[in-house]
Every structure is written in C-alpha cells, then in structure tokens.
Amino acid sequence: MTPQFGEIWVYLSASPLLGLTITLLAYQAAFWLYRRSGMNPLANPVLIAVTILVLLLTLTATSYETYFAGAQFVHFLLGPATVALAIPLYTQFSRVRALLLPVFAGLVAGSLTAALSAIVVARLFGASLPTQLSLAPKSVTTPIAMGIAERIGGIPSLTAVLVIVTGILGAVAARYVLDAIKVRDPAIRGFAIGVAAHGIGTARAFQVSEQAGAFAALAMGLNGALTALLLPLLAGWMR
C-alpha cells in the first residue's frame, strides 16, 4: 500500500494539477472563513490562504517552483483581471470626474507619504540603505514596484515580499483606520486603500462596494505611474 501511495505522490507532485487544486482549495477554505466572519477584514482571505499553503508546502517539503508550475494558471489571470478594472472605472466615471481635484491632491499627498514615511521609519530604526530603497515602492503594484526597486538600488525580490505584506496590512487595517478618522464616503475610502495597499487592498474594496472598488483601482493605477516617476528623483537626492 505504502509504495503505491509513494508512486502516486511522485506523479502528482510533479504535475501542475496539484498546485492548481490546492490553491483553489486553500482559497475556498479562506473565503468560507472570511464569509463566516461577516467579511471581517481581520479574516483577510489572501492572508489565510497564503498561510495554509506555506504550511502545506513546508510540511510536504514541496518547493515553491513545483507549486508555482500549477499555481501559475491562477497567477496569469491577474493580467486580464487588471484590464477588467476598466469596467467599474467606466461605470463610476461620473463620480470620478466630479472629484478630479480631491483625487489629484489625495494621490500626490498619499504617494509621497507612502514612500517617505517608509524610508524615514526604516532609517530611524537602523535599516540599511538598500533596505530603505527596497521599502520605498512598497505601496505600488508588484511589477511596477520591482522595476522601481531595481532602478533606484533596492533589492527587487525583497520589494516583492514587502509589497505583499503591505497589501495585506492595508486590507486588514483600512476599515479601523478610516472609521477612526470618520471618513465615510466610499469613494475616499476606496481611493485611500488603493494608494496605500494596491491590488490586495483593491480586492478588499470590491468586496465592500463597487464604488470603493472602482476608486481603489483608479488609485492603484495612478499611484503606480506617479511613484515610477517620483521615486528615481527622490532616490537620486537621497544619495
């Protein structure tokens, strides 16, 4: 019996089927918990699913590369999903147009705060310069953030981790922070989440309301472009 199971495992662990299936299973379990909690931000589905998968892969001594051979099919859908953000943006556009000045002001202030506060706090607590530079683009969507980190002298793979952690932190904290400062407008709430916590924040915003989601998507796109322009200048001045 045991050698037979061993053979099946050898086959399955080399096939993309397993990585894909466990990704969907872990997410279903995480989403079930999230729903049961009444969509409580603390039960963030990305955080729970990632925790389940990291534990599972570590326990079965499966490498991330092997896992990703299957999970890449889910990962690939990020591209078309990003394109699909155009639709809620179009639906909400009359509101966006009416809020052009607040959107622009919030974007510039938020973008600078995200980069500068990360650098300053890290510097205060004694992080090295490459670490500070890897932190700077942490509020921007992963592909842009890694590109920026590379250009300004950070470590792109470190930035990738920091971006994911930032997204989860933002998605978890946003409700409490925005409630505390008494911001109720879903447009402002969504936009702030998008600037601070890119796509993972945007995913959370869509689960709350379409208007919040559309503004988060807008913020994510604009902040990516602005940070890509600003940070190289800022980093040049830091050295």
């Binding site: 990291v54 994911i164 989860i168």
Partner: peptide
C-alpha cells in the same frame, strides 16, 4: 473575475516562503 480578485494574489503571496 473582480469579485475573487483576492484569489489571484495567492500564488504570488505564497512566494513569500522563499
């Protein structure tokens, strides 16, 4: 697709382990 946008971040998020 957007209702389950969170799912699409799971494979990259799991990359945190390496």
């Amino acid at each position: 697709l957007l209702q389950h946008l969170s799912l699409l971040f799971v494979p990259a998020g799991t990359g945190i382990m390496i």
